[in-house]
Design a protein around this nucleic acid. Structure first.
Lengths: 213, 213
DNA sequence: CAGCGCCTACCGCTTTCAAGGTAAGCGCTG
DNA sequence: CAGCGCTTACCTTGAAAGCGGTAGGCGCTG
């Protein structure tokens, strides 16, 4: 198995490489700190499998998954994240990821996911599985995990999470303030989040912005 | 060297353990996901060294460092974090940490820090060193890294970052709304942050709150 | 074509926030 | 004791946010 790791923390990539290469049949052949680097690394190294941190700066883990599978449909993709938002997990799975593991799990859990995916199966770590199970009961949510946010709303959410006021966002996007306020309202309603703090955390979880200054 | 690792991501701890144990003279003898577990692990395992993620839930990395050195003054402590806020780095160093490495650095950088600290020296990774250098030029900032936030202000910052309004914070803490507003203003002035989004990110960086829901 | 979702925009209303000043009580310390 | 920092509290003012409804234009799709 030729594996590529994608995460914005180099020390995590190096450590994970050390962990995976204790297995004789796994070889970490590339690393990437964002979606763009990931695309080139996967092609250059002819990788069989990738582990993607969903919350990377720049290109999203979900977007990266879609593009990777367009380039290389047989690529095995494992989502790896500190968080397990139902929406994000379902988006990753719908985009074509074969497994999803949270960073609060043991290292063995990731190895288990790799083994299962290598055999052509799907794997969700326990915490994620219970999250997804609820969605599976509602058939309506399998391919439509609640209200999805539009590209425009994502753009505005990003600017909110960067600390801009509706007024400044309107200036930057050449919109009326009222329009920005409507988007803000729709975002809050769709996500069921009702404070700037909660929106900011959501944006961090989904990689729209970083907690860094 | 008997090392204990403290980080809230188990998979990171396991991976880091794999990385460190490729070195024959290092042994990871314990793990902790928060400050409380860390204190007991260090004593139980008679550790020589710890790597602490500054942004842990519950007990802060800075607070954990202070308490560890009270229990075991010869313990070698290395700060490890995704971020490098000047304030946080200086607090860690003043609390007695011997090194500070950011997670965006290579794994070798952490090994270098461990080697240096083992020899009784101090180590800062390049990014952090340049941050601290500025403070060292201002002699006034060596032991007084700008305006520090009080315990009360930290408490209120935490509640702000959890999405509460000044009104609800006042209710919860049995204060007048006006008082909470003054604290909020003082926090914003001291940190030079002027939006709830920026405050929320700061709270995440310093472990006051988590990006999780 | 008709319907739907999205983006755009405006009106009105209430609450909250941001920033400024002022000041009293309390505890610690030089 | 006097000063200092922290906490508490109130005042004002303008800006921003939060929530409601309404509605036109646009593109896609059944």
């Amino acid at each position: 198995m030729r594996v590529v790791l994608a995460d914005d923390h180099q020390i995590f990539r190096h450590a994970l490489k050390a962990l995976l290469e204790r297995e004789t049949d796994l070889e970490v052949v590339g690393e990437a700190r964002n979606g763009e680097e990931l695309l080139t690394a996967v092609i250059r190294e002819a990788a069989d499998m990738v582990c993607i941190d969903v919350a990377m700066p720049g290109m999203n883990g979900v977007e990266a998954t879609r593009r990777l599978l367009m380039l290389k449909p047989d690529l095995k993709i494992i989502g790896l994240s500190a968080f397990s938002d139902r929406q994000v997990v379902l988006d990753m799975l719908n985009a074509g990821a074969k497994a999803y593991v949270t960073k609060t799990e043991a290292g063995d859990e990731l190895l288990r996911a790799i083994r299962m995916v290598a055999l052509g199966r799907t794997y969700l770590c326990p915490e994620v599985a219970s999250t997804v199970k609820d969605a599976l009961c509602d058939q309506s949510q399998v391919n439509n995990a609640g209200p999805r946010i539009t590209a425009r709303e994502r753009q505005i959410l990003q600017l909110i999470a960067e600390g801009h006021t509706s007024c400044r966002i309107a200036e930057r996007l050449h919109l009326a303030v009222s329009t920005v306020e409507v988007h803000r309202r729709n975002i809050m309603r769709k996500l069921d989040l009702h404070s700037v703090a909660a929106l900011t955390k959501f944006a961090i979880r989904t990689g729209l912005t970083s907690a860094a200054r």
